[in-house]
Amino acid sequence: MPSERVRAKLASFAPLYVLLATWLVAALTTPHFAELAWRDGRVVGASVDVCVRAVPVMLAALGLTLVIAGGGIDLSVGSVLALAAVGAARASEAGGSAAVAVGAAVGLGLLVGALNGALVVALGLAPIVATLASMIVVRGAAQLAAGGVVVPIDRSGLVEFLGARPAGLPASVLLVGLLFAAFVVAKRGFAFGLYIEASGDNPRAARLAGLPVGAVLFATYVLCGLASALAGLVVASEIRAADSASAGLYLELDAILAVVIGGTPLSGGRARLLATLVGALALQTLATAMLMHGLAPHVALLVKGLVVLVAAAIARPSWGRAIA
């Protein structure tokens, strides 16, 4: 029945409806929210602001989408962000170039990702336990490396590097596009996507079908570490400092929410990368609008919780129907 198919197709755009609805409500209730302008060779406006502010969550959530699609979870994304930021700051403090700082951050992210992957794949720990432990340990390591202070980044090429605005758009937003494109190519252009989804759906069957399930899941954690490290770079260059105590705090929660709003089932088996980005943008639209309204923080929390519930219910994968 074509109508069924149309309905399924329409349902798969649920995250987009959530984003549009949030944006519309925000635009209607908030003065100047919908305005865009061209100033000094850059696009400015609340919507651009939303995009820029959503970058860390978008990056981490992209990585997390792969992990969750593989049937896992990574709670350490926020801590990895902090560690990578401190790493970049320390590297540029020591006189390293932008490339060295980026290398340090990315290296740390890959390392933590590999550790997470090893704990889950080789030791067989439950992903939530393994990454909860590394969330704590890595946050500790970041604070240790920072020596208990906020490490400033002053004379670094890093800030210019990420502060650049090619084509009038912030570089950090382009970074999201780049990572997204890379993941999509890995997912669609190679068998990686099918491997992740099969491993997440039924690892036993995937293994018997000759898939390298362990290697695939390991790779998802490594990529998630990489994505979180990139988020760390963005945060560090934005505030021109690395604050090991507060950077990336609760990032894992927002990232998970973005994935859920995007309709990737938490039980694994499907990766919806674009929808995750849309989910992250919806969250940030809400946050920015509430900020512009001057809503008290506790009210903002209530509103956010409610919107998330509604969005998750709409985006709920149709096959995850409630148990009869």
Partner: peptide
């Protein structure tokens, strides 16, 4: 349990 990824399509399996 061991044979199929029930959540994936016939084509993907």
């Amino acid at each position: 349990v061991d044979g199929l990824c029930l959540g994936l399509s016939v084509r993907e399996n």
